[in-house]
C-alpha cells in the first residue's frame, strides 16, 4: 500500500495534463520522473481517473521499454549496447557490473536499493564507446577496471 502522498502527487500531475485519455503517456512520464518508476497502484489509479481501462493503461506502459514497474536504485546505470558500443565490447562492461553488484539479466536492482543496471540500445554517444550513464551523467570509454573504480566511488559517495 502506497502512502497517501503518492496519490496527492499523482493528482497534481493529472491536473497539469487534464483528465483525458490522450494524457496517459505524459502523466506516466511525469510519475516516472518523480519516483524513477511507475508503481502499479498508481497506474491503476491514473487509468480510473482519466477513464481508460486498466488493461489499456498496462498495454501502453508495457509497450514502451522506458516505463518500469519496478522500483529503481539510487544510482541508475544504463549500459549502452548500441552497435558502436557493442563492437567495442560493452558486454564485458555489463558482466563486470553484474559481477561487482551481484546482479543478473533478471535481477536489475541491488537489495540495498543502491544500484539499478539496465541496458539501452543507443545513448547517441557512439564516439565515446563503450559508454554508460549514471543517473544521466555520461561515463565514456569504459573498461572493466574503470567499472570497478566507478562502483567503489559511488559506494563511497553514498556512505559519506
Amino acid at each position: 500500500m502506497l502512502d497517501k502522498s503518492y496519490y496527492q502527487k499523482v493528482d497534481e500531475i493529472i491536473n497539469i495534463h487534464g483528465k483525458t485519455k490522450a494524457a496517459l503517456i505524459p502523466i506516466m512520464q511525469d510519475i516516472q520522473a518523480e519516483y524513477k518508476y511507475l508503481a502499479p497502484e498508481l497506474l491503476t489509479y491514473v487509468a480510473k481517473e482519466i477513464g481508460v481501462t486498466e488493461a489499456k493503461a498496462y498495454s501502453v506502459a508495457t509497450f514502451y521499454e522506458n516505463f518500469s514497474f519496478e522500483q529503481k536504485g539510487k544510482y541508475v546505470i544504463k549500459v549502452c549496447d548500441g552497435t558502436a558500443c557493442h563492437v567495442r565490447k560493452s558486454s564485458t562492461i555489463l558482466s563486470k557490473l553484474y559481477e561487482e553488484l551481484g546482479l543478473s539479466k533478471d535481477k536489475h536492482t541491488t537489495d540495498d536499493m543502491m544500484f539499478t543496471v539496465e541496458t539501452v540500445s543507443c545513448l547517441g554517444a557512439c564516439g565515446l564507446a563503450p559508454a554508460l550513464t549514471v543517473n544521466d551523467e555520461v561515463h565514456p570509454a569504459m573498461t572493466p577496471e574503470k567499472v570497478s573504480t566507478l562502483v567503489k566511488e559511488l559506494r563511497g559517495e553514498a556512505n559519506e
Binding site: 481501462t53 498496462y58 509497450f63
Partner: peptide
C-alpha cells in the same frame, strides 16, 4: 465496454 483484456508488451 468492459476492456478486461488488452495487448501487453511488444
Amino acid at each position: 465496454g468492459v476492456g478486461a483484456i488488452d495487448f501487453a508488451y511488444r
